[in-house]
């Protein structure tokens, strides 16, 4: 399959300001060398704990953060920023759905205005064309046409997220970036929105970068899953392969810590000790080996932690402490 979106050695660093002059005193390495490829029509799931840099990555892909190093290629062409004339064209091709629909919709605009705005910004269509596009979008996400005259507060959380999805689809983007689109929703509503996303993906042939912290949700929507830990991707594999055969110690713990709705698990906690180290002052070696105080941690200091392909399509960050190389 053809690669549509390519993220290459992307780094996003933020200065940490301090002292009385608010000068930069340290750097927060939110995303620190991430390379990923998404094929046309594919959905890549990105999972990780809070603070691992997954949202920063998403925001950089849609141009809300400026990369410090590395590049993002869309269809083989480098995305030269999101400002100016060229930037406007780029923005049309990549759209985003945000986590909290209550905060990402303008409360003073009607749903119709919210959905129409992208068309106005890009000066597309006449008034009647725009109106019919709004109706089409509302139908697409399963809302009634009269919703266009109502305000976001009149809708429930699930319906608001449908509006957020419709807005992202207004311009027929090629790539959709979804940042935790269902995390804020209740269980019964969540599965409705997941079904809608699965349906839209198949019908419109969308290419998606789907970000979530919940592996069970990601599994349902993704073809491949990438696991991030402290600014780096540590494992990438086809969805089912990753769950059946996780190779990195962190992926394994992440899967095991999900509480299963099975009373046989009563009182059994799979506990991973420690916490995610700070991205401002990361440990010199493998950050996961450091967290679990692995005996082999010292061996990882100084070794280049690169993603290597261990079986077709299954890449892991090979380090001595988390996924020791098999002896031949």
């Amino acid at each position: 399959m053809k690669t549509l979106l390519e993220i290459s050695k992307l780094k996003v660093h933020f200065p940490v300001k301090g002292g009385i002059w608010m000068r930069p005193v340290a750097t927060c390495k939110a995303v620190d060398g991430v390379s990923l490829e998404i094929a046309k029509g594919e959905t890549l799931g990105l999972v990780g704990e809070s603070g691992c840099g997954k949202s920063t990555l998403a925001r950089t892909v849609v141009g809300l953060n400026v990369p410090t190093a590395g590049k993002i290629l869309l269809d083989g062409q480098k995305l030269g920023g999101f400002r100016g004339k060229q930037g406007k064209k780029n923005r049309k091709r990549i759209q985003m759905v945000f986590q909290d629909p209550a905060e990402s919709l303008n409360a003073r605009h009607t749903v119709g205005q919210i959905l129409e705005e992208p068309l106005l910004v890009h000066r597309m269509g006449s008034q009647s064309e725009r109106n019919s596009r709004v109706k089409e979008l509302l139908n697409l996400v399963g809302l009634a046409e009269n919703a266009a005259n109502r305000y976001p507060f009149e809708f429930s959380g699930g319906q608001r997220q449908r509006i957020g999805i419709a807005r992202a689809l207004t311009l027929n983007p090629e790539v959709l970036v979804l940042d935790e689109p269902v995390s804020a929703l209740d269980l019964s509503i969540r599965s409705q929105v997941i079904n809608l996303l699965m349906d839209l993906k198949n019908r419109l042939g969308l290419t998606c970068l789907f970000i979530a912290h919940d592996l069970s949700v990601v599994r349902h929507l993704s073809d491949r899953i990438a696991v991030m830990y402290l600014g780096k991707v540590i494992e990438v594999a086809p969805a089912q392969e990753l769950l059946n055969n996780p190779l990195h110690g962190y992926t394994r713990s992440l899967i095991e810590s999900i509480p299963q709705p099975d009373p046989k698990m009563h009182g059994k906690f799979s506990v991973l000790s420690g916490e995610v180290p700070s991205p401002i002052n990361p440990p010199p070696g493998c950050p996961f080996g450091y967290r679990i105080r692995s005996e082999l941690y010292t061996e990882s200091i100084g070794t280049a932690l690169e993603l290597t392909e261990v079986s077709p399509g299954h890449w892991i960050q090979q380090c001595p402490c988390c996924c020791p190389k098999k002896k031949p």
């Binding site: 969540r190 599965s191 409705q192 079904n195 069970s216 949700v217 599994r219 349902h220 089912q240 769950l243």
Partner: peptide
Amino acid sequence: SIPSLTDPVQAKLPV
């Protein structure tokens, strides 16, 4: 409606 980690992925989740 809890998405399962082990069952095969269905076309639609029960809602």
